[in-house]
């Protein structure tokens, strides 16, 4: 009986040696690989230092917070539908009338082709799990990409969004396609 008891005690000692608080110093690095050069949607971005990247979702392949108390959200998505329907959907969220055609929007160059800048402000309707909010602003672009569209949208309190407009435009026009993990065509 003594030996099993002793073995149990030894086993218990080995399993109970656990520190709840530890300190370590880490300097081990890893070589860079193609993993480090893969970008969502193959789009490399250059965000301003005042923006902070947070986790994305299925609909937000790139997701940033900016402005006072992270009041402004900037997010990129790839979705279906045309440029005009998406632009009008955004306008509809602010209770604005839909545009008849794309000439209603400012054209900018994004990722090597034309994109359309959508701007709105006012009361934002409830949607996507978010409550309705007064005095909000929107700046975004919609760009055709094959059968899909690439969208970049900035929303938040109207004044905070307006303060980020310049940074947003600089960010949008600096986007570039990078696909180092694709086998180059011969």
């Amino acid at each position: 009986m003594r030996i099993p008891a002793l073995l149990t005690l030894v086993a218990a000692l080995f399993t109970s040696c656990h520190e709840s608080e530890r300190s370590i110093s880490v300097s081990e690095t890893r070589e860079l690989t193609l993993f480090d050069q893969k970008y969502p949607g193959n789009i490399k971005d250059y965000p301003p230092l005042t923006w902070r990247r947070i986790h994305g979702t299925e609909m937000r392949i790139v997701n940033y917070l900016a402005g006072p108390e992270d009041s402004v959200e900037i997010f990129m998505g790839i979705s279906q539908g045309g440029v005009l329907p998406n632009s009008n959907r955004w306008l509809g969220q602010f209770g604005k009338d839909p545009a008849a055609d794309l000439t209603a929007f400012t054209e900018i160059q994004v990722l090597g082709r034309e994109a359309y800048l959508v701007e709105a402000s006012g009361d934002l309707a409830a949607g996507m799990g978010n409550p309705a909010k007064p005095d909000q602003g929107l700046i975004g672009f919609v760009r055709k990409s094959g059968e899909d569209v690439i969208t970049l949208k900035m929303t938040g309190p109207a004044a905070d969004v307006a303060a980020q407009k310049e940074a947003f435009l600089a960010y949008a026009t600096s986007l570039e396609f990078v696909d180092l993990h694709i086998i180059p065509a011969p």
Binding site: E21, I24, V26, T29, D36
Partner: peptide, 27 residues
């Protein structure tokens, strides 16, 4: 805008952690 070589806090340090534990990491 490119990533530099990352410093790695290994799984060997993380996996023994329990939910209530704290790991201080000096880099």
């Amino acid at each position: 805008g490119d990533r530099t070589a990352p410093t790695v806090i290994s799984s060997g340090e993380l996996e023994p952690l329990r939910n209530e534990d704290t790991l201080h990491v000096d880099l």
